[in-house]
Each structure stands twice: as structure tokens, then as C-alpha cells.
């Protein structure tokens, strides 16, 4: 595939020319979109920050609050988990249990847990449980079925 980058424009924009829309083209599209994607989150004393989606390892719902976990920090997100799932499922975020949404690109490996469940070993060293009922969703995201 030829890649051409032009500079000097006011706004950044990516145009992909293709003969037809294949899975690979869709993948490139979601990758480009995720690069620019920022999420407003809340840190200590309600300070607001802008996080790149790529830096978020996972989202977790605890009681009525949703938190975003990066490699070393935790932020609160003023959105429901299902809203984040709908917004970012095309950015490689997959539901892995009732309360957690993981970034598949930041999973280092997967190992079995008991009872048909699995552990997602994240790049930041954390282990997240993948519930049995969400395993098909994860397989779909990884195998691209």
C-alpha cells in the first residue's frame, strides 16, 4: 500500500483510497480514529484531564462510579460503562465482565482461571478476570470474526 503524507494543512485529516472496504481497511480506520481519540476524565480533587484512549488499560464500574485505569493512575469517568462500551467498542475496548471493559491492545497474555474463566494479564502487570459469558465477545475481538 502506498502511503503519502502532505503537510501544511490547517486541520489533520486522513483519507484512505481503496478499491473496496475490507476488514483491513476497517481496521486502519479504527486505528486512525483511536489515535486522535481523547477522553475527558476526572482526577484528584475533580481536576479534569484529557486522556488518550490508547493509554487506558481498562474501565471499571464500582458501585455508581466508573473509573479509567492507565498504567499507573486512576481517573473517574462521568459516563456509564455501557455508554463507554457503545462508544469505544470499535477502538478495541471489549467487555470482559459485568463491571470491566478492557483495552485488548494492552493485554499481554491470557491464561486460564477456574470455572471456564480466563485472566487477562495487562501490560501494567494487573490481572483482570474474563467472565465465562464474555469469552465469546473477546474471541470475536481478537479473531476478528
Amino acid at each position: 500500500m502506498d502511503v503519502e503524507i502532505k503537510t501544511g494543512f490547517e486541520n489533520e485529516r486522513a483519507i484512505v483510497e481503496c478499491t473496496e472496504i475490507t476488514a483491513e481497511i476497517e481496521d486502519i480506520k479504527s486505528y486512525i480514529l483511536s489515535k486522535g481519540k481523547q477522553l475527558t476524565v476526572f482526577g484528584y480533587e475533580e481536576h479534569t484531564y484529557s486522556l488518550k484512549l490508547d493509554d487506558i488499560c481498562y474501565f471499571e464500574a464500582v458501585d455508581e462510579h466508573v473509573f479509567a485505569y492507565t498504567a499507573d493512575k486512576t481517573y473517574e469517568v462521568k459516563k456509564r460503562l455501557y455508554e463507554l462500551e457503545n462508544l469505544y467498542s470499535s477502538y478495541h475496548f471489549v467487555r470482559c465482565s459485568k463491571s470491566v471493559l478492557i483495552n485488548v491492545f494492552l493485554v499481554e497474555s491470557i491464561s486460564p482461571a477456574l470455572n471456564g474463566r480466563f485472566f487477562a494479564h495487562m501490560l501494567n502487570g494487573e490481572k483482570i478476570i474474563i467472565s465465562r459469558q464474555y469469552v465469546p465477545q473477546l474471541k470475536k475481538a481478537i479473531f476478528g470474526e
Binding site: V104, V107, S109, P112, L114, G116, F118, L138, K139, I142
Partner: peptide
């Protein structure tokens, strides 16, 4: 048997994950 089956699934998923990355 169930554990070995899960282990095989986990290894397949990890391989595919590495390939995807």
C-alpha cells in the same frame, strides 16, 4: 480435562493477540 481445554483456548487467544499486535 476442563482446565487443559481452557489452557489450550488461552494459548490460542494469546498467539492470535500477539499476531494482531
Amino acid at each position: 480435562v476442563l482446565y487443559l481445554n481452557d489452557k489450550h483456548t488461552a494459548e490460542t487467544l494469546t498467539k492470535e493477540l500477539v499476531k494482531m499486535k
